[in-house]
Design a protein around this nucleic acid. Sequence first.
DNA 1: TACCAAATGTGTATTTTATACACTTTTATA
DNA 2: TATAAAAGTGTATAAAATACACATTTGGTA
Lengths: 246, 246
Amino acid sequence: MTARKLMQNISVDCVILGFDSEQLNVILVDRTLILPNTSEVVFSDLTLTGYHIYEDEDLDSAAARIVKDLTGLENLPLKQFYSFGALDRLHHPNDQLWLEHCGDVFSDRVVTIGYYSLLPSTNVNFIQKGRNAAWYPVTSAKGLAYDHDFVVEKAIEHLRYKFWHEPIGFELLPVKFTLSQMQKLYEAILGTQFDKRNFRKKVSQMDYVVPLKEKQIGVAHKPAQLFMFSCDVYEKTRKERFDFFV
Amino acid sequence: MTARKLMQNISVDCVILGFDSEQLNVILVDRTLILPNTSEVVFSDLTLTGYHIYEDEDLDSAAARIVKDLTGLENLPLKQFYSFGALDRLHHPNDQLWLEHCGDVFSDRVVTIGYYSLLPSTNVNFIQKGRNAAWYPVTSAKGLAYDHDFVVEKAIEHLRYKFWHEPIGFELLPVKFTLSQMQKLYEAILGTQFDKRNFRKKVSQMDYVVPLKEKQIGVAHKPAQLFMFSCDVYEKTRKERFDFFV
DNA sequence: TACCAAATGTGTATTTTATACACTTTTATA
DNA sequence: TATAAAAGTGTATAAAATACACATTTGGTA
């Protein structure tokens, strides 16, 4: 394989969001600058899973490759949500130090294409090469590298927007889930409370939330019925309607 | 002013959409390749309003500058909607010819950030420098330069999506509009029919559609009452709700 | 083995919203 | 003054949203 050339001015950053039945989490990667001669740790902070794209790969492929390289995760449903090109997005002192020392010398003008992905944040096995990727609660994801605080903020804004209008919540739940888990998720993301009976009445109208003949096991109380989301049924039965009204 | 440097690999393309009470239109710019020595017209086609960004400008500013340069229009509400980075997006023969002959030699790997803007397409005065910008019905916007057919398609998809969920339709109407104009717009974009009485009943629930004490003038029939959209009222009274249900 | 803790699961009455549907009114113009 | 063209209006019915409280099932433990 011949050497692939990285594009100096274009990168991809992925906001991988997970839910653990309590809160929303994001995968962040360790960025520690160690001086090679003295082994001094100059600083240590966190970044999103992101990197420059190669000249011979499109944006979606770049996003998938970068996530795989940094976390080992494959086949995530990565979707583009916004691009970031502020002039000062790499101008914090740590970013400049990092760019000076990190081998490949890149431009300090990089436009990055933001991607996001949703998954349940339990049972995720990271396979890391060198750098450490891990889940962090989004509430604690502050002081990140570059403009990544802003990128995360925009991703969550985008997530909330889609949450109101499409059934994407299921991507954050296990394949088989209980209605209480679903309700907790929606309450957490949308910051609302729902009445249990009315929530269930509403869900029962959704043909694409399919009841299974299985129950929870290993819980110290009455086990709940499990449900699945059917994408097929959703696509076939969805009816759009005005909802900006009133 | 010192010479600004264009970025080889990054451009912005703007899909400026207008409505003329009949159909959706888009501003396109003439791209005619004339050989300088023989004056032969090699080809002539159309592009979106787009160009490379400068090293010292952010994406939003670039979009505004490019639209102004190509059309004379200022202060349009330009919003980013998607980015395009397919490997072959500049690989049609005309695109290659154009890139070879058009002076500045750019890379054939350009990632473009898509912006869109909405406005009523009547009473728009183009001030053009050299190249011709004009409205074209979106239905006839085929065979455009680069991947611009695809960019337009994605923009309209985005528009429809937002149309269902937010009152952005008003950006495509004159400041003062009649309910029939509004209904026709929604029917055109969403591809649905609404019952007149039910549509009006619904609109009357929207506090942010404000009836004026004015009527249409110069029409050869009973003149309709005029209405305005109030962004202030909308922001203060909007209630989000689930709408992906059922 | 009886009791407790913990979470599940269920129904009804009321209000609000959506839908279906047809004729009269107002204006400019011929 | 008759006509054409579009504006404007109400009611009955069906569907959906909301408010609200208690009995049930299970595992664990005394």
